[in-house]
Design a protein around this nucleic acid. Structure first.
Lengths: 229, 229
DNA sequence: ACAAAAGTGTTATTATTACACCCATGA
DNA sequence: TCATGGGTGTAATAATAACACTTTTGT
């Protein structure tokens, strides 16, 4: 049977928290269409490459981050007929969550890769193609996954304090959480946090115990968005 | 820039409940590869067609169901290099939830479309390509969405009783729910169910009020899987 | 009258929230 | 000693789970 030919790409929504702000990795486009606009990093899937492998490859090209240092999951696929004016491109978007990095690294085909606050990008029409929609869906996915999975830890370094984790939730959700109730809930939820022997005073005040992410994949009961503080 | 050409298809996981069993729509393949095996219905995305439009078109070809009669959402995309031995095919899977239908309708390129219990299909290696994996992910998605969205109503006719809705949850989750607590929870959750003026005795016993699906998109609090009865 | 399912009431348990209070460090 | 965040206790409220009991039909 005859069938049309498509180009297939992967695009990445790489989120991290920098300066108490949710930020996303973007590249500046060097050529038309959308020349000089920002875009999500991405690229063509290779001839003999799996989709997730392509996403991991692009991620490493842009950030030097490898699987195991980031959470990477498929987000959604976008294929409206004229989303790229040059040709019919279907893109499989992936969502990556990472701890704050030393420095983003410029990739092969990316003019410059840099972190930019999500809110700024969604307000201004600064993103090329349908990338604002993709970013929006990625952020919503991250927000809801924080509620019922332990993915908040994906934004933290390997060892972190409870209040560092709490700030992740506050930034991603845009709410304030009661530090005392959050602490109890996070530490009492079986399998969520694994205590280490170490403490730190890097957040000021009394030394805080350091934790690692536990092994569970779902939080029960979930960590819903409470209020105030 | 050079890039490989892909074929892009949509595949459908169409779920319904028949005879107190979760069933999925499958077609029998008439040709190799996987000749005479079952497969999820699907087909190529057309030249100038959006992905969701393609999914809706395939759905209508197979079942005569139109948007508005079913819930249709994107599920996930599968593109392992040799998932189809003939060529490089990336498939965007969609999940459809429908009320029990009069009769499935044979489509243009499908030998025969029929309902088959999900459990049977997942146990036996009866499904072609990677369709067992796609089905598995579709069923898991349906199970979890029933918890925090009002999607259980997608398996019901336009007007339904609370106990018909409860049976949906019992079948999809494979649990028993307390009819009295379920009734209270379903009817008290703001915006979930809209009462009509009608009642029915089709389930036996005292007449039950008929409801329509409400307008909310999320259940708060969620309908978690309780026990016993 | 009886079976069967609809629907309400009540109570024990558990989770959530708000907030008082003490602890251990750096400056 | 004081400010800063870490961490525990506790009581009011809300949600859940279990189950007794009344209601309204068909047969």
């Amino acid at each position: 049977m005859a069938h049309p030919a498509f180009a297939v790409t992967v695009d990445l929504v790489v989120l991290t928290i920098r300066e108490d702000t949710l930020q996303v990795l973007v590249v500046r486009r060097g050529e038309a269409p959308f020349k000089n606009k920002s875009a999500l990093p991405g690229g063509f899937v290779h001839e003999n490459e799996d989709l997730e492998t392509a996403a991991a490859r692009e991620l490493q090209e842009e950030t030097a981050l490898t699987r195991g240092e980031v959470h990477l999951e498929q987000l959604a696929t976008f294929g409206a007929p004229h989303r790229d004016p040059r040709m019919r491109v279907v893109t499989v978007a992936y969502l990556a969550l990472a701890a704050e990095l030393p420095q983003p690294r410029a990739g092969t085909d990316a003019a410059e890769a840099r972190w930019q606050p999500v809110d700024e990008l969604l307000d201004t029409g600064e993103l090329a193609f349908d990338h604002a929609e993709i970013l929006h869906i990625g952020v919503e996915r991250a927000r809801s996954k924080l509620e019922y999975t332990p993915l908040g830890t994906a934004f933290c370094p390997p060892e972190f304090t409870v209040s560092e984790l709490r700030r992740v939730y506050e930034v991603v959700w845009g709410t304030r959480l009661d530090p005392r109730n959050f602490h109890r809930k996070a530490t009492k939820t079986e399998g969520f946090l694994v205590p280490t022997d170490h403490t730190t005073t890097r957040d000021g005040g009394r030394p805080a115990r350091l934790y690692r992410a536990g092994s569970i994949k779902l939080l029960y009961p979930p960590l819903l968005r409470s209020t105030a503080a």
